[in-house]
Amino acid sequence: MTIYSLYIFDRHCSCVYYHDWHRSLRAKVATEGNILPAVSHEVYSKPTEGDVSGTPTPSYPGSRLALSSSTGIVVAVNEQPPPTPATVATQTATQATTSSLSFDEEAKLVYGVILSLRNLIKKLSGRDEQFVNYRTSTYKLHLFETVSGFKFVMLSDPNTDSLRFILRQIYAGPFLEYVVKNPLVSMDSKERGIDNELFRLSTDRLVRNVSVFS
């Protein structure tokens, strides 16, 4: 059992944060203009100048600074050397394991599924019932929605028990501490995601400590 990815959607239906761990198919870079900047450097078409907290973002190709994922320390790196045959082969293999969907299309599909199932449950079972998760043969989707309209969505192995508790911990811990209480973050912004490094590192540490993560 393992955890694949995490999405956070705001009340405007926009994906404002993304993080993945054990995806077998990487999402393609989002089409320019169809995703907010600072959602995740892995799926955004252009590098950002820095996050809302003022901390540096991980490096992009050609950058001379890199953020170590293990220590969080910014270190200097050399410019990328000319590609070797081995590098080209590795890049080709990576492209072969990339999803056919761009990230913006993927995020819209995830949100669409959540919205459709939530409305279906309310119509069939009444307003007291809540949509919390569903399972397919390949993954399980977990949902935690806040009163303010933020939706925390996690995809995991289909045999995983409910992970709403970890989504609630992410909201009550790193999200409140580094996003809600951060005066530099606009909670009603339609122009930028919420990807600052303190929030990303704290969320990553929290998820990796869950027993089902492997």
Rank of each mutant, 00 (worst) to 15 (best):
L201Y: 09
E79Q: 13
F199L: 08
T138N: 09
V207Q: 06
V77W: 10
L65Q: 14
I114T: 05
V74H: 08
L184I: 01
R164W: 04
A172Y: 13
V16Y: 04
K123M: 05
T55V: 02
R168V: 00
R135A: 07
Y134E: 03
D51K: 14
P81V: 05
D188F: 13
Y178V: 04
L6P: 04
Y134N: 11
V153D: 02
V147C: 02
H19W: 08
P85R: 12
S100C: 04
S156E: 09
G72Q: 08
R208P: 01
D104H: 15
R23P: 01
Y178H: 15
V179E: 00
Y178K: 14
F144L: 06
R164H: 10
L101K: 13
I3F: 04
A30R: 12
T160A: 12
Y134I: 08
P174V: 04
T160W: 02
A86K: 13
L167P: 09
S63H: 14
A30T: 12
L198D: 14
G62R: 14
M187F: 06
A107K: 05
G193Q: 07
S5K: 15
A27E: 02
G149A: 02
T90W: 09
H12F: 13
V110W: 01
D161C: 02
L206P: 11
T48D: 10
L167Y: 09
S40N: 14
L67Q: 07
L141D: 01
V52M: 12
E49P: 01
L117E: 02
L176F: 06
V113I: 15
L201T: 13
S202W: 03
K181L: 05
T48E: 11
Y171L: 04
E79R: 15
L115E: 11
T87L: 05
L67P: 05
Q130G: 00
D20G: 02
A76G: 06
P56Q: 11
E32G: 02
L25E: 03
G33D: 03
H22T: 12
C13M: 07
G33K: 09
Q130C: 06
V185S: 04
T138A: 03
S125F: 14
A27P: 11
P37A: 03
R192W: 04
I194W: 15
A96W: 14
V39K: 01
V185D: 00
F131Y: 15
